[in-house]
Computed example of a mutant assay.
Amino acid sequence: MTDYPISDYDDAYANGAHIEGAADYPPQWSRQAEAFRDALAAAGRARLDLAYGPAERNRLDLFLPESAPKGLAVFVHGGYWRAFSKSEWSHLAAGPLAHGYAVAMPSYTLCPDNRIAGIGREVAAAIGFAANEVAGPIRLTGHSAGGQLVTRMISGPALLSDAVTARIAGVTSISGVHDLRPIMLTAMNDTLKIDDAEAQAESPVLLEPRAPIPVMAWVGAAERPEFVRQNRALYEMWRGFSTPVRMHEDQGRHHFNVIDGLADPNHPLCRAFLGLDQAAG
């Protein structure tokens, strides 16, 4: 484990440098995602590049199950708010689709062309758009920076409408960065430009949940110690409220493969996300 206080914040939040074969993951994700999109598009079950707002990256993909959706699942990608798009993660929709959920995956305007607060507003607009397209309960999940974004959706000053918030049945943050203050101490902040005010306003651990929506804080047990700590921080801070919050440390999983369970309808992560395994935790 990392000794505290941390002397090198860049290393503490460096994932790829500590994962064997890290450079192979992004092209693998892209290949899997493209093949998945092509297959669903051929089956008439993919609505791609739907505009949810005016900006160039205000686009989402909506994947549909074989029958009428029983609800909406939303996946918000990570990349430290400065990398990736919806198009690297399409294959992760396979698990929720198998359980009858429609799956929305939005892109958003990255830093430095946006601020983290602005990204939150875009993600909220994407969720609102998708909610108008698909009826039923809504479940939110996000990875890394996406974990911050989905937990921000249900905490602090409202980003979602009351009607959409009332439909949210659960939120799963996967390896979420729930406290932005340490990120201010990394070189990434030259791009992100987080200041004290934004860190206070956009860090879920410093905010109060808006409603008693069930939350799962999920992290790979083999991740960088700071991600394990960030996951525990959300659990510890939010369990003092009426929000039902649980925590899980996935043994043997690191930052790049902890998300794989979403693609498997029988994996504990997918089942926990969809509220099918309330005992997990």
Rank of each mutant, 00 (worst) to 15 (best):
Val74Gly: 03
Arg181Phe: 15
Leu40Gln: 14
Ala14Met: 08
Leu269Pro: 07
Ala124Cys: 05
Asp179Gly: 01
Arg115Gln: 13
Arg57Ala: 14
Ile19Phe: 15
Arg181Ile: 14
Arg57Leu: 11
Ala222Trp: 11
Ala272Asp: 04
Ala104Ile: 02
His91Val: 11
Arg37Ser: 14
Cys111Leu: 07
Arg229Phe: 10
Ala94His: 13
Gly44Ile: 04
Thr141Asp: 07
Phe273Pro: 04
Tyr4Arg: 14
Ala33Asn: 05
Tyr52His: 06
Gly136Gln: 01
Ala104Lys: 05
Ala272Gly: 12
Glu20Gly: 14
Ala279Thr: 13
Ala199Ser: 15
Ser175Asn: 09
Ile116Cys: 12
Pro268Leu: 12
Met216Asn: 01
Gly147Val: 09
Leu62Gln: 11
Asp264Ile: 10
Ala201Val: 08
Val215Arg: 09
Ser175Val: 00
Met153Lys: 05
Ala158Val: 06
Val219Met: 09
Gly147Leu: 03
Val219Ala: 02
Asp162His: 11
Arg45Ala: 13
Ala166Tyr: 09
Gly79Asp: 01
Leu48Phe: 05
Ala22Lys: 04
Pro5Ala: 09
Asp61Asn: 10
Ile138Thr: 05
Asn15Leu: 08
Ile259Ala: 13
Leu97Val: 01
Ile127Cys: 03
Phe129Cys: 04
Glu122Asn: 00
Lys70Trp: 01
Val219Cys: 06
Gly170Ser: 00
Glu198Val: 11
Pro112Cys: 01
Ala158Ile: 06
Glu122Thr: 02
Glu202Ala: 15
Arg181His: 14
Trp238Arg: 06
Arg57Pro: 11
Ala197Lys: 14
Ala104Leu: 08
Ile154Gly: 05
